[in-house]
Design a protein around this nucleic acid. Structure first.
Lengths: 165, 165
DNA sequence: CGTGAAACATTAGCGGC
DNA sequence: GCCGCTAATGTTTCACG
């Protein structure tokens, strides 16, 4: 997990792997004009240093019946902690973050600048599910003051590939 | 690419693969108590039907120097098309969508409900890069009227895994 | 960094439930 | 129809030059 030097060859390996994570080491080695063993050594180094966080299959949400994608802005209570914050207790933010981890329909959550505190990306089947999620989970949470939702009408672009210069 | 029936075994395969896309077929077969060949047949079927969109390596943005993540709301011009839309021409929306595809720092873009038209997720090195992107690309685009940006202070959760019930 | 050999994984064909 | 076996083929991985 230590920080690591990344040269031009490493970047080419990363560019290939973030487009197709199942290419064989041989195939990658060929594309960058290297033999398989040094190529594999570089890949292992990138994995162990944490530059490569992991390998995943990307699924098609619509084919799995997850037709509704929403971005939800959330504002939290900031004073008078939970149970009046006796001393050195969990804050509203701590509680909310822990809850977010347990909600599978929340596929992303960021603390944000601006007048709302958090931005959630929520992936669900339909409006009925979304409504239940907001009422029973989000608004039910003691730290949440206010939510504002926008729905995705269409996905124009969606990639996990980072711009590697 | 046809639509396909997905049974409980398929869902278990998908749940495993969206967490770790590099497991061998044998390993997956073991975990679901199936022998390798029917397991592989199911995986291939899921790939060919498009339920599995692909396999990718996930990279660590910070370790690659991409320290700034912004969500940018964009509003577009809606009347008086490009070159006054002589007849059957590309609309402002068409032009903007095409431009988005060519900007590598835009890793996601959705058409949204609400008073802004598009939501962009923008991943860049630092504020200087972001500033240049907004000035030289976004605001320079003839279809863009207005942009409103929020910056990510911290990522609380981030997964490509969909909630498979 | 490259070579080669052992260990391991994938895949197609065939028979059985 | 879907499962599981086997055998051939291809890939990964490691010690060594």
């Amino acid at each position: 997990m230590a920080n690591i030097e990344i040269d031009a060859i490493d970047r080419r390996i990363l560019a290939i792997l973030q487009e197709n994570g199942r290419l064989s080491n041989q195939e990658i080695a060929e594309r960058i004009n290297l033999s398989p063993s040094p190529c594999l050594r570089r890949i292992r180094r990138l994995e162990e240093s944490g530059v490569i966080r992991g390998y995943v299959a990307l699924l098609d949400a619509q084919r799995l019946g997850l037709d509704l994608l929403a971005y939800v802005n959330v504002r939290l209570e900031k004073r008078g902690g939970p149970a009046l914050s006796p001393r050195g207790e969990a804050t509203h933010a701590d509680l909310f973050r822990a809850a977010v981890q347990t909600w599978p329909e929340v596929v992303a959550c960021h603390a944000m600048t601006g007048d709302m505190d958090y931005l959630l990306r929520v992936q669900v089947e339909d409006m009925a599910h979304f409504s239940r999620f907001v009422q029973d989970q989000l608004l039910h949470h003691p730290s949440v003051i206010d939510v504002k939702t926008s729905f995705s009408l269409e996905t124009i672009k969606e990639t996990t590939a980072l711009p590697l210069l």
